[in-house]
């Protein structure tokens, strides 16, 4: 009898754990009323950033992909216009994060940390989302007038989530340091 054994390795567990966290934030945020359509803090992106900076691009891509699909299934927006907007935004922000990872490897002296990555990915998210909205759903030139305030919101929320991610990363690296010296005196 042939048995296929699937064993979850360390990476799988990390991806699953962080994806679960991102999905919870995504669902909570979906229940939050937004003053302007299209404007959301994007707190789930904090998780993507943390995974990117601690576990690399591949894991971050998985976490973001799982978050968008499972999150939309739970919220009930899977395959709706909102889902496509969100998916195209995620594609834009992941492309930028991938480019930024290459940038960080090529130019370590000018490397981007959480805040820079967060701002760039927030702007990319909004741009792609807006591009999809404009070309597919509402091809009216009046929509372009909304672009500047939407991008301003993306910039502000990008900085805010970047600071949040940076704070969490700081705590995590402190925890790592503490775990490496478990028998410290005191």
């Amino acid at each position: 009898m042939n048995t296929i054994m699937l064993t979850a390795d360390r990476d799988d567990r990390i991806i699953a754990g962080f994806a679960a966290l991102a999905i919870v934030i995504h669902v909570l945020e979906a229940g939050f009323p937004s003053p302007i359509p299209g404007v959301k803090p994007g707190l789930a992106n904090v998780v993507t950033l943390i995974v990117l900076l601690r576990h690399g691009l591949r894991s971050a891509l998985w976490v973001a992909l799982l978050r968008v699909i499972v999150g939309s299934l739970l919220v009930g927006s899977f395959m709706t216009p909102g889902f496509w907007l969100s998916a195209s935004g995620a594609a834009g922000s992941l492309t930028v994060l991938a480019a930024a990872s290459i940038w960080n490897r090529a130019l370590p002296g000018w490397g981007l940390s959480a805040v820079g990555l967060s701002v760039l990915s927030a702007l990319a998210h909004m741009s792609l989302q807006f591009f999809t909205a404009y070309t597919v759903f509402v091809p009216h030139s009046g929509l372009l007038r909304l672009l500047p305030p939407l991008m301003t919101a993306a910039l502000a929320f990008g900085v805010a989530t970047g600071i949040a991610a940076s704070a969490v990363l700081q705590r995590l690296s402190e925890a790592d340091a503490a775990a490496q010296t478990p028998h410290s005196e005191g």
Partner: peptide, 22 residues
């Protein structure tokens, strides 16, 4: 390290300039 690296400052400045341009 500080909250913002040199690269971060560059990225945020460029982003703000782009938004201003919009």
């Amino acid at each position: 390290r500080g909250l913002l690296s040199r690269g971060d400052v560059l990225a945020v400045t460029l982003a703000a300039a782009c938004v201003g341009g919009l």
